[in-house]
């Protein structure tokens, strides 16, 4: 299965409709995630980051496109492959990096690590590492927003693998039944760890599954950031207007291993190389160059800005304090019950 050949490219409308600065901003955001994660991989081999580290390199367009469609008051629920979501949501690179280091200035105070980024201020309700575990939580957040008459949309990210879990089906059904304001956003990167979608789904067209629960489903080219954004904007607008939940399937690909432990015995180098031809950063940069909106100097400037921010983030993580061991039991219960 290869990337969908889009018959119409709604992203073109955005490309012509958005000012140059806005387009460069999207490119910058994707570069920021890419370079941040490349640095994470280095820091992992240097023993600064431990445990599981799941990179979203190759999938940046989904995070950036989707977050552009959300407002600060909206909710985000994510997975363990959430560095991109967190950064695109506006959580500082320093807070995320410090979390990877396990430092007390990390966004989860060093308790969560790479897989469990949380940030209340940004209404980022977590990286969840039980596959599918975030979906019903998103349904509940949407229920709360509806009952409290708050105009929030809850955007829930999950992978193609999660679609096999019962909670996916139960969550779509419940959200549709109660017409709750949820955007279910499936990042279909074709693999659940080492298992290709054709070996874990009887119906590989994930967007079509929505029909079974009576909500609209749509697939989008997850390598084209402007197309993701346009589709996400339309879906979020409908959800916000009270039309009930939507399922958006972004067809994408992870360029790196599942995690740092994965020897990648299940796919060929050729397959990976073929997908790299559709690198989301190159795709946007290429389109911008064609439209005379980007040149080497402008790209170098973006790269420079991004590198400087990441350097600062690493410095903040290095300098950050360790949580004192005597605080081990902190935040298990609220202080009242401790």
């Amino acid at each position: 299965m290869s990337a969908p050949e889009a018959t119409h490219r709604p992203g073109q409308a955005l490309l012509s409709g958005l000012p140059r600065e806005a387009l460069l901003e999207r490119l910058r955001e994707m570069l920021r995630i890419r370079r941040f994660e490349e640095r994470c991989a280095e820091l992992y081999t240097q023993g600064k980051i431990h445990g599981f580290l799941h990179l979203c390199i190759g999938e940046e367009a989904v995070a950036v496109g989707a977050m552009r469609a959300l407002r600060p008051e909206d909710n985000v629920v994510s997975t363990y492959r959430e560095h991109g979501h967190a950064l695109a949501r506006g959580i500082s690179a320093a807070a995320v990096m410090a979390e990877m280091f396990g430092k007390a200035n990390g966004c989860s105070r060093g308790r969560g690590g790479s897989m469990h980024l949380f940030d209340a201020q940004h209404r980022f309700f977590g990286g969840h590492a039980i596959v599918g575990g975030g979906l019903p939580i998103a349904v509940g957040l949407a229920l709360a927003a509806r009952m409290r008459q708050e105009a929030r949309v809850t955007c829930c990210f999950f992978g193609d693998g999660a679609v096999a879990e019962g909670v996916f089906h139960e969550s779509l059904n419940l959200a549709a039944l109660w017409r709750l304001p949820v955007l279910f956003l499936c990042e279909n990167n074709l693999y659940a760890m080492g298992t290709h979608i054709t070996r874990h789904q009887s119906q590989i067209d994930i967007a079509r599954k929505a029909a079974a629960y009576g909500l609209p489903g749509q697939a989008v080219d997850g390598m084209a950031v402007l197309e993701v954004e346009e589709a996400a904007r339309a879906a979020v607008a409908a959800v916000r207007a009270g039309e009930g939940p939507r399922l958006l399937e972004a067809r994408t690909y992870r360029f790196r291993a599942h995690s740092m432990y994965d020897p990648e015995l299940y796919r060929s180098r050729e397959e990976v190389a073929q997908w790299k031809q559709r690198d989301p950063i190159d795709l946007l940069a290429g389109a911008l160059r064609q439209a005379d909106l980007l040149d080497d100097a402008a790209l170098a400037q973006l790269e420079g800005e991004v590198a400087a921010e990441i350097d600062l983030a690493v410095a903040a993580a290095e300098a950050g304090p360790w949580e004192p061991v005597q605080d081990l039991l902190k935040d298990v219960h609220s202080p009242r019950f401790a």
Partner: peptide
Amino acid sequence: AEVPLPYAGHL
């Protein structure tokens, strides 16, 4: 210890 296992190694 009665705590969800924290990520940071020393903890």
